[in-house]
């Protein structure tokens, strides 16, 4: 007897949002270039001790402010320290600041945004007015003031950058939550008696992941840029720890005789920030193709 239950229909394999987005991202050469830059710089930061030709803090006064040569590809600084090695080690500070600050701002932004959006009313009003207050400061000025008030150290750089950086994410999450919380699947979860924090974490927040990924990628670029600005002003990590902004600051007075002193660390900042911006742009197009022009 013929088997009539078997339907000769080829079922298309279900594809997730992430699979589709990755396929779209792969076709975007500039975004892939950004991803390559980030992976390369992450590799440099992790393996700095193996890659750096010299100890970044080794002083050699006989070789001070030497131009690029075979021995020192990017030249040397005022103390005769190898600039390439200092840039390689400096990548650790930039990457750490970028990722740690984004992690902290993500936790603060998502928590406050989700609570404001889900509960609404007075809680929402209070959180959003607080966000308005922080957003009404010119960012760098507030970061500077906080960093001066808190004192030196990498930890205080994290705090200063994080206090200013979470607002955009809170607003973004809040707007997403406002849109999602009225949808049927949330209503159904509520009717089934699922607890509020579980509804927020399990049902609402997963729907905010796509815009958050874009925000975090761009945010890393912003944090790296702000840290470079702080270091340039002498408010970053303490000397002699190498950071790209502080190398540029040191090179400032040698710009007439030793332009390479400021040139190379600046390239490092620009390339890193460009990498994250290119990837962020690509992710935005890939995760939400409707936005693409």
């Amino acid at each position: 007897m013929e088997n009539t239950n078997v339907l000769d229909v080829k079922m298309e394999k279900g594809r997730s949002l992430w699979y589709d987005s990755w396929q779209r991202l792969k076709k975007n050469p500039t975004a892939m270039f950004g991803l390559f830059l980030i992976i390369f710089l992450g590799f440099v930061a992790i393996f700095a001790p193996l890659l750096a030709p010299y100890d970044p803090n080794k002083i050699s006064l006989r070789e001070n402010v030497d131009p690029p040569s075979r021995a020192h590809w990017f030249g040397t600084d005022y103390y005769g320290r190898d600039i390439l090695s200092r840039i390689i080690y400096g990548s650790r500070i930039s990457m750490t600041v970028g990722f740690v600050v984004q992690f902290i701002t993500l936790v603060i932004g998502v928590t406050l945004g989700a609570v404001a959006g889900y509960f609404g009313g007075k809680v929402d009003m209070l959180i959003m007015r607080f966000t308005d207050v922080i957003m009404s400061f010119p960012g760098l000025l507030l970061i500077i003031a906080m960093r001066v008030a808190l004192g030196p150290g990498l930890f205080n750089v994290f705090i200063a950058l994080s206090v200013v950086g979470w607002t955009g994410k809170a607003r973004l999450v809040r707007s997403q939550v406002l849109a999602i919380r009225e949808q049927d699947f949330v209503e159904a979860a509520r009717a089934l008696g699922v607890k509020t924090h579980r509804i927020i974490i399990r049902h609402i927040l997963p729907n905010c992941i796509a815009p958050m990924i874009v925000s975090v990628t761009m945010g890393i670029a912003g944090a790296i840029m702000s840290e470079a600005g702080l270091s340039f002003l002498g408010l970053g990590v303490q000397k002699p720890i190498p950071s790209w902004g502080s190398i540029i600051n040191e090179g400032l007075q040698y710009i007439r005789v030793a332009p390479w002193y400021t040139l190379f660390p600046g390239f490092a900042i620009a390339l890193t920030v460009l990498g994250f911006n290119l990837l962020g742009d690509g992710l935005r197009d890939a995760l939400d193709p409707r936005l693409k022009h």
Binding site: M225, I248, G266, N277
Partner: peptide
């Protein structure tokens, strides 16, 4: 445009000065 957005303003200023 993205390259200029990614360039630190203080470094760009120094390049112009040079």
């Amino acid at each position: 445009a993205l390259i200029f957005i990614s360039t630190p303003v203080f470094w760009f200023g120094l390049i112009l000065i040079y």
